[in-house]
Design a protein around this nucleic acid. Sequence first.
DNA 1: GCATTATTTAGATATTTGTCTAAATATCTA
DNA 2: TAGATATTTAGACAAATATCTAAATAATGC
Lengths: 95, 95
Amino acid sequence: MKQQAVFRALADPTRRAILKRLHGGAMSAGEIGEAFDITGASLSHHFAVLKQADLVRTERRGQYIVYSLNSTVMEDLTRMMLDLIPSAGGKGGKR
Amino acid sequence: MKQQAVFRALADPTRRAILKRLHGGAMSAGEIGEAFDITGASLSHHFAVLKQADLVRTERRGQYIVYSLNSTVMEDLTRMMLDLIPSAGGKGGKR
DNA sequence: GCATTATTTAGATATTTGTCTAAATATCTA
DNA sequence: TAGATATTTAGACAAATATCTAAATAATGC
């Protein structure tokens, strides 16, 4: 997992909102965009950042490009964060 | 929890390293700084960001200022992230 | 009080980032 | 093939950020 890419991706509120929206299921870029008041170009930029962090997957379906969550990376990340918490799991523990 | 402040704080690798370092126990600003090749002023800036996110606590001890992890916020954050993962806990669930 | 040490604040600067408009690419349908 | 729709790419620009040096604040010990 590209830790830096993932944390950077999550730092922007619009990108977190995109992930949340995808939580409901896969969606085309356009559908996702309906919820936001920014241009398609800006949206596309956010998608690129999320893809680079491997947080989303894409699949072309005809004219559309469908985005879906890659929950594996999210799980990895969460595990890694638990590792930063002394009270859970213990420092340097195996896990 | 100020979500945006927390994610923003975690987006920088130096700050994540600081948190990791504090994982071993409370330390003065100077002690933390030994591990990094940046000026005290820059360090201080990172501390300010971490404090704003409530990720660390400070306590003056004589001449020194001692930093320690605030694990509560880290736990909150992790829970919140788990909520972004479909396979764990379920979307929109109570939790 | 004064010099020393630890940390923060102020101000400057270069880099990164989010957004936009305009143009390019890809697919569908008539 | 031409026109319409969906998405990305290129290039520009303003705002945010990480860093630095210099100065300020706070505590210690002579």
